[in-house]
Design a protein around this nucleic acid. Structure first.
Length: 197
DNA sequence: CGCCAGATTGACT
DNA sequence: GTCAATCTGGCGG
């Protein structure tokens, strides 16, 4: 079997993990069918000091974001489920939002789940990606460094740093000074909600 | 207990 | 361009 990312992959600065996830394969097992997307866009979120982080509000999300790394954190907003992976250094708090993917396996199933034919719209956006891969709240809190829950991440390609661009996070009103969105330069499957990006 | 804001999407005046 | 749908947790805006 190919390279399942180990839990240790997610132990590190959220921005570094977010960069490292570009080019990896997000895999979903659904009724013995493999759905997968190449991750092309991510964002890093930190703890209570990050004004855009859900951890700022405390509660369950903060506990999960400060807990075991490599765990799925599913965040419901505006009728969408957003997929995050808990990632931080020891004793810290943070997560990586998976924003966009390029569909690779199970494309016909994804088209059915999305009710769309255009591959460029299947998983280009955090809410679109979760719908295309049938990820919902039932995945919340589940480790993704094992295959037991039907959702995991595998090695796929190495993306050289010259191919990685960064920008400010999309849709946040109070961002940190550091750009924390990472994406593959020029990739057609990156979501485009900001003019000129 | 109700209201508000927010890491979005897609349909429509 | 504009707006509504709908989930979560903090706060009384």
């Amino acid at each position: 079997m190919s390279g399942l990312l180990p839990q240790s992959f997610y132990e590190g600065d959220p921005a570094e993990v977010a960069r490292g996830l570009l080019g990896k394969l997000l895999v979903r097992l659904l009724d013995r069918c493999r759905l997968s997307c190449i991750i092309v866009e991510t964002e890093a979120y930190y703890g209570p000091d990050d004004p855009a982080s859900r951890a700022r509000r405390g509660g369950e999300l903060r506990r999960i974001m400060g807990g075991d790394v490599g765990v799925a954190l599913i965040y419901g907003i505006h009728r969408q489920w957003l997929l995050n992976i808990v990632a931080h250094e020891k004793g810290e708090c943070g997560a990586v939002l998976i924003r966009s993917g390029k569909p690779l396996e199970g494309i016909e199933i994804m088209k059915r789940l999305r009710g769309l034919d255009d591959a460029h719209l299947l998983a280009s956006g955090p809410g679109r990606l979760t719908r295309a891969m049938h990820v919902d709240k039932s995945m919340h809190g589940k480790p993704i460094y094992i295959r037991d829950h039907g959702l995991w991440i595998e090695d796929y390609v190495d993306v050289p740093s010259s191919m990685i661009a960064r920008s400010h996070r999309i849709g946040v009103s109070k961002d940190l000074p550091t750009p924390l969105r990472f994406y593959i330069k020029g990739n057609e499957f990156v979501s485009r909600r900001v003019r000129g990006v």
